[in-house]
Computed example of a mutant assay.
Amino acid sequence: MRHRIFAAMVLAGLATPAFAQHHQGHGDHAAHMAASPSIAAAVADTRRKDSNRARDQYRHPVETLDFFGIKPDQTVVEIWPGGGWYTEILAPMLRDKGHYIAAAQPPGKYRAATETLVASDPARFDKVRITTLDPKAPGDIAPAGSADAVLTFRNVHNFLMAGDDAAKAVFVSFYKALKPGGVLGVVDHRLPEDRDPALEKSSGYIKQSTIVRLAESAGFRLAAESPVNANPKDTADHPGGVWTLPPTLAKGEEDRAKYQAIGESDRATLKFVKP
């Protein structure tokens, strides 16, 4: 009974901050079964790369997208999709009734990866629109007031590394793109609140309170948080930062088994709303 109650709390966005900080998010079968059939079908699509599907156990795409309230008739902007881990889920799901916009990096290898993926399979990606988000000069990632949701997965720490003003400007771009009542969904590597703030500029981890501060500075309201991507095994103090963990495994063979046993990082999953 306790697990069914917890799953309902997650999907309703009612889990308390303390519980969200410490609960292990892996394998929440009840929440998975209760999620949107459209999301579940998109995640189960066998056209997704096997290497991407292998990470579902860490990234919980069904529960995460359901928590953000994503529906197939929405306009959704994904920030910096890179190689397209979530593009493979979102673009086909939104293709017929909604719109998927990839707000990609400025020209370089990550934008090229997005463009290559989109060109690789017109049956899934022919309606994808690619725009640009440059933290050094944020512009329109979508027509103002057009998006139902803006989603950013493991990117806010990068924006902060470009400077606090740049990070604030990026959140303003998110705010501008959204309709009133629209959702900003954020997932990022979580730095414990008692750690040195300087680590946010070097470790790849960011404090949840910093994400909230940046979002609120742009006018957003924190609506809910979910523990679905929490990982208590992650101590967030690795010698090479978050990149020491899978999937990067920056240390190569050094302590590889140890880091694989930890899995991907502990992550904050936050839902903000534009009033």
Rank of each mutant, 00 (worst) to 15 (best):
4 R>Y: 06
5 I>P: 00
6 F>P: 00
7 A>N: 04
10 V>F: 02
12 A>H: 10
15 A>L: 14
18 A>F: 11
18 A>T: 12
25 G>T: 02
26 H>Y: 09
26 H>V: 08
27 G>N: 07
28 D>V: 11
31 A>H: 08
34 A>F: 06
40 A>D: 05
40 A>H: 07
42 A>K: 03
47 R>L: 00
49 K>N: 08
50 D>H: 07
50 D>A: 11
52 N>Q: 05
53 R>Y: 04
56 D>L: 12
58 Y>K: 04
59 R>N: 06
67 F>M: 11
70 I>A: 07
72 P>T: 01
72 P>Q: 05
82 G>C: 06
86 Y>G: 05
89 I>C: 05
92 P>Q: 09
93 M>N: 07
95 R>L: 12
95 R>C: 02
99 H>E: 10
101 I>Q: 12
104 A>S: 14
106 P>G: 14
106 P>T: 15
109 K>V: 08
111 R>E: 13
116 T>W: 03
117 L>Y: 01
117 L>M: 05
118 V>Q: 15
120 S>W: 14
121 D>N: 12
122 P>C: 05
127 K>L: 01
128 V>A: 15
129 R>H: 12
131 T>D: 01
133 L>I: 15
140 D>F: 09
141 I>E: 12
141 I>P: 13
142 A>V: 08
146 S>P: 02
149 A>M: 08
149 A>P: 13
151 L>W: 09
153 F>W: 14
155 N>S: 15
155 N>M: 13
156 V>T: 15
156 V>Y: 06
156 V>K: 07
156 V>R: 04
161 M>L: 03
162 A>D: 11
166 A>V: 00
169 A>S: 12
173 S>W: 07
175 Y>L: 02
175 Y>T: 00
178 L>F: 11
179 K>Y: 08
182 G>L: 05
184 L>M: 10
188 D>L: 01
191 L>F: 09
191 L>Y: 08
191 L>G: 07
193 E>N: 07
196 D>C: 03
197 P>E: 10
199 L>I: 05
202 S>Y: 01
204 G>Y: 02
204 G>I: 00
206 I>P: 05
208 Q>F: 04
210 T>W: 06
211 I>K: 08
211 I>S: 11
214 L>S: 06
215 A>P: 15
216 E>K: 15
216 E>T: 15
217 S>G: 07
218 A>S: 00
222 L>I: 10
222 L>A: 09
223 A>V: 00
223 A>F: 00
232 P>S: 08
235 T>D: 13
238 H>S: 06
245 L>P: 01
246 P>K: 03
246 P>D: 04
248 T>Y: 02
249 L>R: 04
249 L>I: 00
255 D>Y: 00
255 D>N: 07
256 R>I: 09
258 K>E: 05
261 A>P: 13
262 I>F: 07
263 G>Q: 11
264 E>V: 00
267 R>I: 12
268 A>H: 06
269 T>A: 12
273 V>D: 14
275 P>A: 10
